[in-house]
């Protein structure tokens, strides 16, 4: 697997192997703080703190994992904001709902027009559905909601399935966003966690001005530093 790394020449020129490794590591960590390029390569979620953490939005050609360890930390809010944002850009979006949690009544009715909602009778069907949709090239963003999926499903999910999805995502330049209750996606380029449930203060505000975004607590668990050509999985990745 050929990887193209734009590591500065002066680091590679260092003859001492250990020093060279330390310098490469330091260089990579320095890059980690740089957000991914926005614009054509990212799909904005429409949620300012989330987009800021992701450097403009969900990266196209990569898998983004969003972990919501407990309900009510803002995952559904971000999904609905993304529906709205994608509709404003006049593109269709898919939500693969493994446990049938999506509530159409909570969405703005026009946002539903560009949404393809797939409810999976078996949670494992979500993987097959995502694979089929990724190859279609119609949808710039595909969301897989696997939160609350039963543990027995996760037992039968192999790493190869994720790698297959990751490769297909890279080939078709699509943003695949996977929602989970705990970190599950080994090949996610970015892994974010929503850590704090909303407080009841939000009830006291008018819906249009509720400071929901301020209450979001987003933690970056992982940001992959580089990707090889054709979405090859890099040999080095860092988790904070």
């Amino acid at each position: 697997m050929e990887m193209k790394l734009a590591i500065p020449e002066h680091i590679l020129a260092n003859e001492d192997r250990n020093t060279r490794f330390q310098e490469i590591r330091a260089w990579m960590l320095g890059r980690e703080s740089q957000p991914a390029p926005a614009g054509e390569d990212a799909i904005a979620s429409g949620c300012a703190p989330m987009d800021a953490q992701m450097g403009g939005g969900f990266a196209r050609g990569a898998v983004t994992e969003c972990v919501e360890r407990q309900a009510g930390c803002g995952g559904q809010h971000i999904i609905h904001r993304t529906l709205h944002s994608v509709r404003l850009s006049r593109k269709p979006i898919v939500l693969i709902d493994a446990c049938h949690h999506f509530d159409p009544a909570s969405a703005a009715p026009p946002d539903l027009e560009s949404l393809l909602w797939i409810r999976c009778p078996k949670a494992l069907d979500a993987f097959k559905a995502a694979d089929i949709l990724l190859r279609d090239d119609t949808f710039p963003i595909i969301m897989m909601d696997l939160r609350d999926s039963p543990d027995r499903m996760w037992v039968s999910v192999r790493n190869e399935q994720w790698i297959r999805l990751q490769r297909t995502t890279a080939q078709h330049h699509c943003a695949l966003v996977v929602w989970t209750s705990s970190a599950r996606v080994p090949c996610a380029r970015t892994r974010l966690a929503l850590t704090r449930p909303f407080s009841p203060d939000l009830w006291d505000h008018h819906p249009a001005s509720a400071p929901v975004d301020q209450q979001l607590r987003i933690e970056v668990l992982k940001r992959q530093i580089f990707a090889g050509e054709n979405g090859d999985i890099p040999s080095v990745a860092f988790a904070s």
Partner: peptide, 22 residues
């Protein structure tokens, strides 16, 4: 066919959407 978008205040998504148990 995707219609042109007209953003109006009533058009915004609910800031506290429900995650429904079925």
């Amino acid at each position: 066919d995707l219609d042109p978008v007209e953003t109006t205040p009533t058009d915004l998504p609910n800031p506290l959407p429900l995650r429904r148990m079925r």
